[in-house]
Design a protein around this nucleic acid. Structure first.
Lengths: 169, 169
DNA sequence: TATCGCATGTAATTAGTTACATGATTGG
DNA sequence: CCAATCATGTAACTAATTACATGCGATA
């Protein structure tokens, strides 16, 4: 619903938008998106209208007033008691157990973790942040996507620097 | 297997150890742990011996040489091409879509995200890091758990400070 | 003697991914 | 004309959580 609100009208567009923005903390697959859109329509939170492109069928979704209200209620319902951010990551898991390795292998693992954090930072900063800026200029200035993208880039940068100071012999 | 290596012999102990350490980036449930231990035993990577406590049955697992080798191979197999850290988080998702809220509501959301990051940092620093230090003193000085716990605490601290500088009117 | 923690498992449900299946449009 | 992208869905499978079910041991 949030993606629809930001201008992604079709299921395909919702998936594409998620890939280009929320992928790092909330990935979505097409097989999730299509049934979900249908359910939200059945619940009266989205309205659908046929918007074919030539002979190719396309469904253009938009938020109903009830959908807008439900989205805002969901945004307001966040409480700090909710589970904290999960840094779900098999790299950190390996670092956790890295005492089973030799010192050289340990250093190599830390180096690879640094590389990956640096790559994630670069990708967010060079691809995702500019895309969010463009969205802000285009669609009535939503700032959430840009703020989250910058937070992500800076956090990966922080992790990269932190790991550079680790001396895990 | 990593947990068994660090001294958690029973399924219950593995779960408890995960709750007290890897929970933030790799949560485990008992319903996962027990079948997994049985599979690893069947594969010859763990050996099991009956270790009853009075009349209460208990299985004490330990790594076989093949298990030790498999664990090390898994630790070595990490490549930066692997999916980057996922900050899977419904709080970030809400921030992403927060333009649908009023300025006051937005600020309240950011404040709650800060509170939660601060709580996670405090918990890691006051509970998880000391537990990892104790483990290091007890079990032949594994440093991975402590390093990861400190990285987590510092990262949450970074996020908390970052959010304090956000002006999302 | 009752509650809490230790201990082991199964069953049911829910969430999520991957693969399959199909076909139109657009740009090189 | 061929490849990439747009577009929609279903089916099968895998992973993960939650709930259920049971019972001993220690301690307050």
């Amino acid at each position: 619903m949030g993606m629809v609100r930001l201008g992604a009208s079709s299921g395909y567009a919702v998936k594409k938008a998620a890939d280009a923005s929320t992928r790092f903390f909330w990935p979505a697959s097409l097989a999730q998106v299509y049934p979900e859109l249908a359910e939200l329509e059945a619940a009266g939170l989205l309205s659908r209208c046929e918007d074919p492109h030539g002979a190719r069928a396309r469904s253009a979704y938009s938020l109903t007033p009830q959908g807008e209200a439900a989205l805002r209620e969901w945004l307001r319902s966040y409480r700090p008691a909710h589970a904290p951010v999960q840094l779900r990551d098999d790299g950190l898991l390996r670092l956790f157990f890295a005492d089973a390795l030799s010192p050289d292998e340990r250093r190599a693992l830390v180096a690879r973790l640094r590389e990956r954090a640096a790559a994630a930072e670069a990708h967010l900063r060079n691809e995702i942040v500019p895309a969010a800026e463009q969205l802000a200029r285009a669609a009535g200035g939503p700032r959430g996507p840009e703020i989250v993208a910058r937070l992500g880039a800076d956090t990966y940068g922080f992790i990269e620097r932190w790991l550079s100071g680790v001396d895990f012999r």
